[in-house]
Each structure stands twice: as C-alpha cells, then as structure tokens.
Design a protein around this nucleic acid. Structure first.
Lengths: 190, 190, 190, 190
DNA sequence: TATGAATGAGTTTTCATTCAT
DNA sequence: TATGAATGAAAACTCATTCAT
C-alpha cells in the first residue's frame, strides 16, 4: 500500500474511534508507520485528510445509488435494493461511514458547505425514488417523501453507534431488515 | 438565572453548535457572562459541564418514557405516544439532544461507561414495549425488536442534522409522522 | 517592571540583535523570565510584539518632531534641533530603532500598510521644514526637499549597522555632526 | 541562462522582496523553474545562495570604486564620480543591493565576518578619498571622514526602502543629487 | 464567591536538507 | 545531472487548569 493510502486508512480508523478533534497527527503517522513530514508531503493539513475521507465516501455512495436508481425494476424493488445497498456499503466501510456522519462540524467551513451540497443532492436522488412510488400509487402519500428519507438515513447514521461487525447479525441480514422496515413504513396499511 | 444555570445553557448551545472539542472554556464563560474562576468554582472541569448535560437529558427521557410505558392503553397507542414524545422533547431541547448524541466520545471513559449503561436501560425499556406488541400479536414478529428500536432511535439521533425549529414543520407534526412511520413498519402488512 | 514590559524589552533587544525571523518566542520568554503562556496572555502573537514596538517608536518620534517643528526659532535652527533629536532618540532607543528600520517586511501586511502610512506622515512633516527653509530662501532650492529628507533618514536608518553606544563618539557629538552635515548640504554654497 | 544563474536571479529577487528568512527554498526553485534536487546540485545550501549574492555585489563595488578612486582628477571630482556611481550601480542592481544591506544577519557567522571585513575595506577606501580632500584643504576638516562616509552610505542603504525604479526620478538624477549633497556637506561654508 | 494572571503540556505545521533512483 | 519522496528538528500557538488575592 502506498504512503498516502496508509495515511488515509490510519486517519479513517482513528477518526472513527475517537473523533477528528481527539486525534493527533502524531498518532496518525505512527499508525501509518511514517513521519509527520511524509504526511505533510502528501496532505496539506490534517483537515485535508478529513476532506479526502469525505470525498471518497461521497463519490462511492453517489455512484452506487445512481446504479440502483437507474434500473428498470418496479420502484419498490429499486428502493429496497438501494436502501439495502446503503446499509451494506456503510457497514463494509464502517469507519469511513462513522467519520462521515460524525465529523461534519470539524470540516473547514467552505468544505463543509460543499459536502452538505453534495449530500443534499444525494438525499434528493433518494427522495425522488420515494416520490416516484408515491406518484405511482405503490407508496402511501400521506408521509412527506423528504421526511421519510431523513427517517431512513437517520437509521443509517445511527449504525455507527451500535452495530458491531463481529456481532451475530450479518450485514446482509441487517440490510434486509432495514430495507424491509423502510418499505413497510411506506406501503399502504390494511 | 443562576450562574451554574447560565453556564450549562451556554455550554449546551456551544457544544451543540461546534462540538465539545471545538469549544474553549473561555467561550463558554463569555457567553454565560462570567469569568473562568467562577466556572471552576461551580464545575470541576469542562468535562463536568458535559457530564451534567448528559445527566439532565438521561433523567428527563427516562422519566417521560416510564410515564408513557406504564399507562394502560393498548400497546400500539403507548408506543406511539412514547415515540412521539421522544421526538417532541428532543426538539424542545434541541441543543441538549444534539450534544447528547454527538459528544459521547468526548466524555471521560468512566462517565461514558455510565452514560452508555443508562442509555441501554432506556433502550431496553423501549424495546420491551415493542416486544410486548409482538407477543400480543399486534406487531409483526419477523423483525427483531432490538433492531427496530435502533432503527427508530437512529431517526431521533439524526434530527439534529436536518430539522430546523424555524422551518415549516411543527414539532407535533414531525412527531406524529415519525411515530406513524414506526408503527407502520411494525404492523402486519396486507 | 511588569510582565508585558519585560516581554517588550526582551523582544526588542532580541529582534535588534538577530532580526525578527531568527528569534524564537521561546528565547523571548526566557529572556523576559516568563513562560510562553504568559506571553500569549498579553500578546496575541509574536507579530503583536513587533507591532507594539513599531507603535511605540512611531508615537515617540511623532510627538518629538512636532514639538521641535512647532517652535518659533528660525527654520534652520528648528531643522537642526529636530534632526539632532532624531539621532539622539534613535541612539537612546537603539534597539527599538534598529528593529524599526529593519523589520518592516516581517510585519503582517495590513499592519505594514499602517506603519508605512504613519511613516509617510512623519516624513512629510520633516520635509515641510525643509520646504519652509527653501521658500524663505535660507536653503538651496535646487535639491528636492523630498529627496533631502530621504537622504537624511537614510543616515539615521544606517546608524544601527555601525554606531556603537560604547564607542568613543558620544550621542550628542554624533547628533551635532549629522545635523551639521544635513544643514551644510542644504545651505547655499559660496 | 544557465540553471545556477536562474537560481541566483530567483533568489535575489525573492530575498529582496521578502527577506532571506521568509523565503522558502521551494519558492526559489519554483521561480527558477527547476527542482530542489537541481538546486542542491549546484549550491550546497540556501545560505550558499546568499553568500554568492554578497560575493557578487562586493566584487563589483570594489572594482568600480577602485577605478574611480585611482583616477587623476581633482579629489572632489573623483569623490563625486565614485559616489554617483555607487548610486547608479545600486539602482541598476536594485534587488541585489537591497539584499546586500538587509540580510547581513542571515549570513552564517563566519561568512558574515568575511563580508564585514570586505565592507570595511571598501568603506576605508571611500573614506580615504574624503581624507585626501580634507588634507588638501578642499573639504572641511571639522567632520570626521569616517562619520561622513557612514553618513553617505546610510543614504545608499536606505534607497531600497523608498526609491522606485519606475518613479519619475531617473537613476542619473538621483545619483547626481546625492553626490551633490555629499559634496555640499563637505565643502567649506561661507 | 469570584478574579484573571500565569502555567505547561500538547498541538499543528514548516522547511532545509538528504538520498535512493 | 536531476528527481521528489521522506526526514526530523524546530517553530508558533492553544487551552484546560491552578492559585494568590
């Protein structure tokens, strides 16, 4: 693995573990097995490492959502697949996801603005799926799609505080359950 | 308002805004309109302020949940009321709730342990309601109650990142929608 | 002496000796006999110390020049007295004067702008004296007053690189010689 | 232009602009359009660049002064010519002259010693001219020649802080005025 | 009760220089 | 000749906390 990759990995795991502000650059370079100078050769600052982590998560999530949303299956199936995929990838990149949700306020103001804008776009793409289902009559329309989207991503956000990769629940089970709950809450009740 | 109260209020709003680690004691005392010496007269440390905020939130949530859970209404109604109440109180104490969810890792290790233990008790009380509904046949049993509880509290946790008190959605509407979504996801589908 | 005064004195002598950029804050506080924290209690930054030194020199020189210029003696006498006084005060505040002339480029850009504006005002007040003598016919008019002013202040500027307080030449002698040379260069030649 | 020449030029302009200590090697090589490795191939250190700049200025000034001093014209004319020439060459090599006067304290101690010795020799050669005029009766003898020499070089030193090559005053005019002022201050007054 | 000067450990960052290629 | 990744020492600055008053 290259030095920058080792640094990103070390930073990701440490930021996930203790929070950006409680991690010293010294710890990051020690975990990566390099010196501080090397870090500043590749990254302009500690903030830069965080920015890079955000960039990677955003790019990955956007690509994957797009793939699922653009499919031709019925909307309920596409939403279920996309929701399950968010869970799976969040769990597979557990540390990065944790950092993503908890360290927004540690980003420099201008980057934070950009990140929020990208997240909003992502949120809107997801919401559009729900609206599509509501327009087509599959989903109940008495819940604002925007609110349902927040509702679901809240659960994703929260994963980092309780889910254990080494626990009894496999990522696929977790993902299916969560996607089921989302769909259940959107379907018409009898 | 007394000096300690002013300090707690100032600390709560600042911690909510920027995160515990990005707030200097100097800022807190300035916002509270007192001096550092005064703060250290009433609180042993900056950590102490955080601990106090956690204590208040925990005590309040536990009391309220107990009140709703101990009622004699049908379980679905009790769960709906309890869920809606969590939302309402979180929104009414927006800053404290934000701090509560985001600053666990800034607590000193031993306090963090206590806080987690209390939260677990709270979580279990809520889960017990769901299990009661599953045992009685009102709720679907194919979703682990523990997971559904996490699912719901994730949405509460997440509120702090998007809900705006001054937005168009009133707390009561928000609470009803969220409680509806929870109940909808637990009911049997047709 | 108070702590801020001790710090200013230590900084002045060290900046004069080695130049602002070659002096570590650690050296300053050691010479002042305090800790770094104490320095940052009184001064916002290392730059701040430099700014303060500039402010003091500027205030003193402006006041003194004004006093001499506003007199009612013949202009040649007033110019001679003012010129000699610049030398005397520069020599009496040797370190501060050295810093003043050599560290402009180490000032933060905005402060540098202010300092230059103040110096210009000072320069213009001095130049006005020369122009007064030219207008009255005492001084030769074939040398631009502005240029003569620069000419003289160059010699003051330069003092720091060669004059030794502990040398054979007393400040008063130095001052008289320099003021004589200035006046000589301005008088009509036979 | 060769690589070493480009490096010297880049270093000279940057040192003149910001001062030796505020210029990073990285900036120098960027302005010169080469890499750090290349610089360290030709120069042993950043100090080495500064030493080279001092060497060039010293050699040039010494040669030129010698040429003017060794002439057979009357001493007043030789001094006037030498003085004007110092101004002209300082202005023609504005950046190098600026560096020469302002960065002595950034030279490594031993080099600084050498540079000061060479400057002293130069100063003495100039002073000898004044003493020659005093011995011959052309110049007033009541001003120490040493002091008059410092007086004049102070003005040269100072040029870098106010003279603008693109201003209204041409180098030749400046040089003539300054040489005139020097001679005027040395002549007997009526 | 309250002040605020002072501490000192810890933080991020810079940068001249080296060296394997 | 030249590259540029990597080093490591030193720098400025922050901040929770203490303590004499």
């Amino acid at each position: 693995m290259t030095v920058p990759e080792r640094l990103i990995d070390a930073a990701t795991s440490l930021f996930a573990e203790k929070g950006f502000d409680r991690v010293a650059v010294q710890e990051i370079v020690e975990r990566a097995g390099v010196t501080k100078g090397a870090m500043y050769h590749y990254f302009g600052s500690k903030d830069d490492l965080l920015r890079e982590i955000y960039g990677r998560v955003l790019r990955m999530q956007q690509e994957r959502l797009e793939k699922f949303a653009a499919d031709t299956d019925p909307v309920a199936e596409r939403l279920h697949a996309a929701a399950a995929d968010v869970i799976i990838t969040s769990v597979e990149n557990y540390d990065a996801a944790k950092v993503f949700f908890r360290s927004v306020d540690s980003l420099p103001a201008e980057i934070r603005k950009d990140v929020r804008a990208e997240r909003r776009k992502y949120h809107e793409r997801f919401r559009a799926l729900i609206e599509e289902g509501q327009a087509g009559g599959e989903f109940r329309a008495d819940v604002p799609a925007d609110l349902a989207t927040h509702y679901f991503f809240g659960t994703v956000h929260h994963l980092g505080t309780w889910y254990r990769l080494d626990g009894p629940l496999k990522p696929e089970q977790l993902a299916r359950h969560y996607a089921d709950l989302l769909l259940a809450s959107l379907r018409h009740q009898h």
